Simulated scan of single mutants.
Amino acid sequence: MRAYILAHEDAVVRWRSLMGPTRVSRARNTAPDSIRGAYGLTDTRNTTHGSDSAASASEEIAFFFPEFDERRWYQEDEPRLRCGQARYSVEERVHQVPEEEGTESA
């Protein structure tokens, strides 16, 4: 199992669109190229999960990533990500915003 935090203004809507309908039979008929349409087995084994709102996403992020500080992300990392100051770490499978010069990580 893998869990990710997706960062985008419309992350919830976009991810839910890529996943397709929750019911696999509906996904196969109405969105066959969606993740669930292509790979879902049953309604309870539908291959993927995504939050249904920003509030749910915050709760689920806190559950799966207790060390993640959402407030700090929005105040410090997210503005730097928007400016293109992020790199992808293949080893860790995550985008990282480098520490600003003259600061130390905790």
Score class of each variant (00 low, 15 high):
43 D>V: 04
25 S>T: 12
100 E>Q: 14
16 R>L: 01
3 A>P: 01
10 D>Y: 09
106 A>K: 11
93 R>D: 15
49 H>M: 10
91 E>W: 03
22 T>Q: 07
8 H>G: 13
49 H>W: 13
87 R>Q: 15
48 T>K: 03
68 F>Q: 04
92 E>L: 12
11 A>D: 11
67 E>C: 05
2 R>F: 14
77 D>A: 12
20 G>P: 06
39 Y>F: 15
80 R>I: 04
73 W>M: 04
10 D>W: 07
32 P>T: 09
4 Y>W: 13
75 Q>P: 01
92 E>V: 08
27 A>S: 10
68 F>N: 08
2 R>D: 08
16 R>A: 05
25 S>M: 11
12 V>Q: 04
86 A>C: 02
32 P>R: 06
40 G>P: 04
79 P>E: 06
90 V>W: 01
83 C>A: 15
65 F>C: 04
9 E>Q: 12
54 A>N: 13
93 R>V: 04
8 H>E: 14
105 S>G: 13
30 T>K: 02
47 T>F: 00
41 L>M: 14
66 P>S: 03
72 R>D: 14
18 L>V: 11
15 W>P: 06
105 S>R: 14
82 R>T: 02
63 F>A: 13
10 D>P: 01
40 G>Q: 01
41 L>F: 13
9 E>Y: 10
80 R>Y: 04
72 R>I: 09
60 E>T: 07
91 E>A: 14
11 A>Y: 08
84 G>T: 02
23 R>E: 12
96 Q>D: 04
41 L>H: 09
39 Y>N: 07
75 Q>F: 06
20 G>E: 04
22 T>W: 01
5 I>R: 07
26 R>P: 00
102 G>T: 09
14 R>H: 09
11 A>W: 09
14 R>S: 14
91 E>Q: 10
81 L>T: 10
9 E>C: 09
48 T>F: 00
46 N>S: 10
37 G>F: 00
10 D>K: 13
100 E>R: 15
20 G>K: 01
31 A>L: 00
2 R>P: 12
53 S>C: 05
49 H>K: 06
59 E>V: 11
16 R>W: 00
92 E>D: 13
62 A>R: 12
73 W>A: 04
54 A>S: 14
105 S>A: 13
60 E>M: 06
77 D>N: 11
100 E>Y: 02
25 S>A: 15
68 F>Y: 09
55 A>T: 13
99 E>L: 15
63 F>G: 07
10 D>S: 11
70 E>H: 11
61 I>G: 06
69 D>V: 00
14 R>D: 09
10 D>Q: 13
71 R>K: 15
9 E>I: 10
73 W>L: 03
42 T>C: 07
79 P>F: 00
33 D>P: 01
46 N>E: 05
